[in-house]
Amino acid sequence: MDPLIVTQILNILFGVTTLAMIALGLAITFGMLGVLNLAHGEFVMMGAFCALVVDRAGAPFVLAVPLALLVCGGVGLMVEMLLIRPLYRRPFDTLVATWGLSLLLRKLAEAGFGLGFNSVSVPLAGTATLFGADYPTYRLVLIVVCVAIIGALFAWYGTSRAGLKIRAMVGNPDLARALGMPVKRLATTTFVIGSCLAGLAGVMVAPLVPVHPYLGLDYVIKSFFVLVVGGLGSVLGVVAGTGVIGGLDSVMSAVFGSTQAYFTVLVVAILFLWLKPRGLFSHG
């Protein structure tokens, strides 16, 4: 195969898997809790800054993972208790409150690190050869790690007893409470898991993008579009939505350039929001 095509395919794959990773966290909080977390991107941003801190300290890159989990998980826990919990079942207020949260987190990052672009050195520098094409090793590893994490989460959700209980609680919380299931604790756990996933994604993309306080904005918007296109709360939806948005973005970028790609994604998302707000798989 033509090495150029292989590279492009890998680029598309990379775009789709990293987007899926970020959208997944958002899908979990939205699908399960009905919480539209506009600050999800800021958790990605925090994860990226964790990587930056570790990099600057000269510590091994892998240490960024536990740091990001700690920071994002901790902040997620606080946010759930102080901000999300009082506003459950008030989607509108949640939207505004998480918007405020995103502002706060951005401004905090700005106050701490400034508005400038920072770079994190790439771990596993160098390239690997795949089907005759040279491709950065780190990106290849990321594709594999993302697929593994997403696959493991879906498998766990679909087959484990804990996953079964979660599905029960999401589908019929009142009945779940009658069966003694701790619905409130689940909500907290779910939000924290969503935040941790975002943080993890942030660490992973940090070496590849300029790290700055507004980093999360683009990701969160794209992730929302994924949910909108795929429909809410279904596994299939996240996959399909990422395929459409991530695929469209990557293909258009490769063919026409990133501005046109961004433009197309926005138009598609607006059409979906307007005409099919419940996503691809809704009827009517």
Partner: peptide, 10 residues
Amino acid sequence: PQERPVFDDL
């Protein structure tokens, strides 16, 4: 309960 007595999705 009277209404929604089972987990419909399971």
